[in-house]
């Protein structure tokens, strides 16, 4: 199984993703933003960073990169795509995921370990029992998830909310547990089909025991195991 890590000018987490994949025995290679050939890749990751300097809006320019029309086609064929942080922002700008990511309410760039609870979802990338709490770092300035009321209703009804910010015990504070003001404490969502997944936290930074948490591992291994099973 081969993981493609899409590299935009200004991406800065691509090496972490490739390192995480290799740590887990997953073959991973970079895909340049100008490339239009995704043949041979079984799954794609859009890593974090500041693609095109985050000019206009985060992800607004990256979404028109030559590679992105192929990423859209790959996703439409059912190929698994995960967008982490800036990658999540790019997926919303590309309309592969609903909603948008606004400036953090506190106007602060946040960077710290963050408890997250897994929700019951249709996401192909995550298969954690509902309520499982994982500890994964967040590192962003625009992670304040927003969508309109109808979209939120649909996300909840279809099992498209994959991860929520929470307290260390898995509960949600009455005023919200999101460190960035995200609507309904949403940290990660997927599309209706479950193959396209976007999240603000960085699972690739929670793979190597050296950094103190390996809670990010299932975010890479689950989909790979699923693909291997399908391939027989």
């Amino acid at each position: 199984m081969r993981l493609g890590v899409v590299l935009f000018p200004g991406s800065n987490c691509e090496q972490d993703v490739v390192h995480a994949a290799h740590e887990l025995g997953i073959g991973a290679e970079y895909v340049w933003h100008g490339d239009t050939d995704l043949a041979g890749f079984d799954a794609l990751v859009l890593p974090g960073g500041f693609s095109y300097g985050d000019y206009i809006r985060c992800g607004a320019v990256a979404r028109f990169s030559p590679v992105m029309s192929e990423v859209v086609r790959f996703a439409e064929r059912g190929g698994p795509v995960m967008g982490i942080c800036n990658g999540f922002q790019i997926l919303t700008e590309a309309h592969l995921l609903p909603g948008a990511l606004l400036r953090n309410t506190g106007l602060k760039f946040i960077c710290h370990p963050q408890p997250l609870r897994a929700e019951r979802s249709v996401c192909e990338w995550v298969n954690l029992p509902e309520g499982t709490v994982v500890d994964i770092p967040v590192n962003h300035n625009e992670g304040n998830y927003y969508c309109d009321v109808d979209t939120l209703e649909r996300l909840n009804a279809n099992g498209q909310v994959v991860l929520r910010y929470c307290e260390p015990d898995g509960s949600r504070a009455p005023g919200g547990s999101a460190p960035n003001g995200a609507l309904d404490d949403i940290a990660g969502i997927c599309n209706e089909r479950g193959n396209v997944f976007g999240l603000m936290p960085h699972p690739e930074r929670a793979v190597d025991p050296l950094v103190g948490t390996t809670d990010g591992r299932p975010f890479f291994t689950t989909v790979m195991a699923r693909l291997a099973e399908v391939a027989g």
Partner: peptide
């Protein structure tokens, strides 16, 4: 298409 995001 680019300068504004009609979602927000």
């Amino acid at each position: 298409r680019l300068l504004a995001n009609p979602v927000i």
